[in-house]
Amino acid sequence: MITIDKISKTYNGKAAVDELSLDIETGTFFGILGPNGAGKTTLINLVTGILKPDSGNIFVNGKLVSKNNLKARKNIGYVPQDIALYSDLTVLQNLRFWGSFYQKSKTFLDARIHNLLVKIGLLDRKLSKVKSLSGGMKRRINLAVALLHDPEILVMDEPTVGIDPQSRILIHNILSEVHSAGCTILYTSHYLDEFEKLCDIIAIMDHGNIIASGSMDDLRRNYASSDMLLIELDVPIKEDEISGILGNDFQYAIKGERKLIIETDPGNKTIERIICKLEQSNTSIKNVEIRKSDLENLFFNLTGTELRN
């Protein structure tokens, strides 16, 4: 179990993580969704002990990370955002090197390396230098390194960025298997389908804190009850102006001066009515987009920003 208690981390006066608290139950596949700069990587680095919090505590299986750093690390497997391998070494050399830190027997390590190579489909490439492999293959090894010591907790920072579909599916399958075996997984990604497919709990993070969390169903129920109409205007508009145009018929919000988010029921007639009202008031429309009630829509609704900004 991971318990995060009011941790904060500041860089140059700006809070990357701001009094964040979180409990992740043992065996949970916990996804953290957030825009760039939300503080996800900082949070991951704090949990793994790479960074120390300015304030607050993190407990991994009841052990305070800052005091029992080495013991806590033995239970954690970490997959960084970038490929963290020695490109001039072979796959096997890399795996042996990274596996050598956990006081596992040579027999255990050799068997584990063999099994993982089979799982990631790179047994026949074990003697290839990492630099000769494709991005997807490197991502697979990146994951295998984190699993070498059979960790109780797997912390992954966008492990599937920029990879081919085949590698992505393979990684998903391995993660599902690891999860089924009882491993607690803390996961960040930009791919929303991964959250829906893999995660038990999803937390939405913005400005260094968790602004919503729960299962996908919980989030849908609590934060995204209907589809949304996103209207981008040519000129900035104020709250009272839009209130005068739309009246009280619709739930809406203004994001970034020119973006109008309006909750709608499915059906073209509602959309037609809204657009008609805006045109009648000579409000110039640049773009209109209908957003379905999915995670991306929910994310936008909560943060007012696109996930991939």
Binding site: G49, I50, R73, Y78, D82, A84, L85, Y86, F101, V145
Partner: peptide, 13 residues
């Protein structure tokens, strides 16, 4: 090469 961050997560002072 990003390996430093990973080394910092292994049980090593």
């Amino acid at each position: 090469s990003n390996t430093l961050a990973r080394i910092m997560t292994v049980p090593l002072k």
